[in-house]
Design a protein around this nucleic acid. Structure first.
Lengths: 144, 144
DNA sequence: GCATTTTATTTACTTAGGTAAGTATATGGC
DNA sequence: GCCATATACTTACCTAAGTAAATAAAATGC
């Protein structure tokens, strides 16, 4: 395939999502749900905007996933002082389960990149971050 | 984010699909449709199985996209000698349009990786190909 | 030669992402 | 204070990819 790079990125993206979903089955979670739980675990309560900005997806995508997480008891939402905002936080059930899930995900991801050295992983990350930036933004590569 | 690598792969995958979709708008095509047209242009007539095996997706995904491509006149299908198979081929309309589309895609992709040197692109490809393979398969890295 | 198994494709349904438009609340101009 | 604009979120609808199960045709066993 001529456009090998994008083909390959696309493939590995699908592959890793597939593996993570497989690992999450025992917890009745999907990869996108996990990414939000992980986010909340790392930063504490967040507005939906903070979540979609951090994950770099669109607002409706987060709305949908959050609704499902709320229905299944992983998170709760409350109104903010600004009544347009909805503040999202982990349930105590989620807080209790998260360490196990994180360990499981860590294993899955480690296995996926087990044939790369630490240096190669670092290199891969640096190269990936360069994709999609134009000359003028290039100085910001290390921030993302 | 701890799982930075997958986060980044996922992001760049979405970004590149978005850009390719944007570029394909003027031709009334989507990225997944393009990948099938490209495939057929490269290899000539193919069965659906050959397509999904090459693109490394599941059969139902190819069925859906092919049905749409057929409805919009980009491809035609005929029965094979084996009547279970359906042989897919480009329409003359598609053959006529493809060079322009390919040029447009080439530009889009080049712009996305414009901040990488040729050596870096090659390196990125090599590293990506190593993802998801176990020790015993490692010798096959260069085939993919 | 017929029953069983395999194979190619399709259908139905799920999550995941996107855009566009709608709703409700804040904010600014005056 | 009120109207226009901006912002946060939601709804509706599109493509993309996956799994599971259905269908139809080949291939195989005996």
């Amino acid at each position: 395939m001529r456009n090998l790079l994008f083909h390959e990125i696309h493939q590995k993206s699908r592959l890793s999502i597939k593996e993570v979903n497989e690992a999450l089955k025992e917890f009745d979670l999907y990869s996108s749900q996990w990414s939000i739980l992980f986010c909340l675990n790392q930063f504490g309560s967040m507005t939906q905007k903070e979540i979609w900005q951090y994950l770099n997806v669109e607002a409706p995508t987060v709305t949908r996933t959050i609704v499902r997480l709320e229905k299944s008891g992983w998170i709760a939402r409350r109104e903010g002082k600004d009544k347009r905002e909805r503040i999202v936080q982990l349930s105590s059930f989620a807080e209790q389960k998260l360490p196990d899930i994180e360990e499981r995900i860590r294993q899955t991801e480690a296995s996926l990149v087990s044939s790369l050295t630490d240096e190669e992983k670092e290199q891969l990350l640096v190269l990936l971050k360069k994709i999609g930036i134009t000359g003028s933004e290039e100085k910001d590569v290390r921030n993302g």
